[in-house]
Simulated scan of single mutants.
Amino acid sequence: MPRNSIHFAKSFGIYAVLTGLILGLAFPSDANSETADRRNSNANSPVLTVAEAKAVRNAIESRFFVDSRLKDIGSVRLTIHIKLARDGQIVGNPDVQVTGGSERAQKSLSDVGLRAVRRAAPFTMLPKDKYDAWKEVVLNFDTSALTQ
């Protein structure tokens, strides 16, 4: 595996998964009023630990391979919204939003990100008693680490 892919995977995983899980769980993009009310009214709602978020990061990171020939890959921002079942399987199709970079870079990163998430599933490392904390996960990916 090329060194750039390893460097990117580590930088990408650390930033994207931890930021995505922590911020994404706090601010889901399609939260309806029922979900928001339930979260606000339950002060004892479960929260993922750093170790649990790191386990998800490692699962996805090990399956993320980028085409290093893409020149403008560092300007692409990728957000993947995943809904998970209690057994850690992906429910439906993940929603992908891509901004920045060329159309080719966007398409490539979108495909690579989806493939990595699908290959990492099921996410059996997530604690079943904290299902409410991880039933919807938003992963935010900043690809600028490739240009450093």
Rank of each mutant, 00 (worst) to 15 (best):
L84S: 04
D132F: 04
G20V: 02
L114G: 14
S29V: 15
I6R: 12
S110G: 06
D72K: 07
A51F: 10
P28C: 07
T124P: 05
R86C: 01
R104W: 00
L25H: 13
L114Q: 14
R69M: 05
F65W: 14
L78I: 11
H81A: 13
P94C: 02
H81K: 14
P122G: 10
K130H: 15
G13L: 03
A59P: 00
A55G: 09
W134N: 09
R118V: 12
Q89M: 10
R57F: 06
L78F: 05
A85Y: 05
D129L: 03
L21D: 03
D72A: 03
F64T: 13
K83V: 04
A116I: 05
S29T: 12
T19E: 12
D132S: 11
F8V: 08
P127K: 04
S29I: 13
N42D: 15
A51G: 03
P2H: 07
S5I: 14
A9C: 00
T79N: 04
R38T: 15
N93M: 09
P127S: 09
L25Y: 08
F12I: 11
A59L: 11
R38M: 11
E136Y: 06
V17H: 06
I73H: 09
L139R: 01
D30V: 08
S11F: 05
L146A: 10
L70Y: 11
L48R: 08
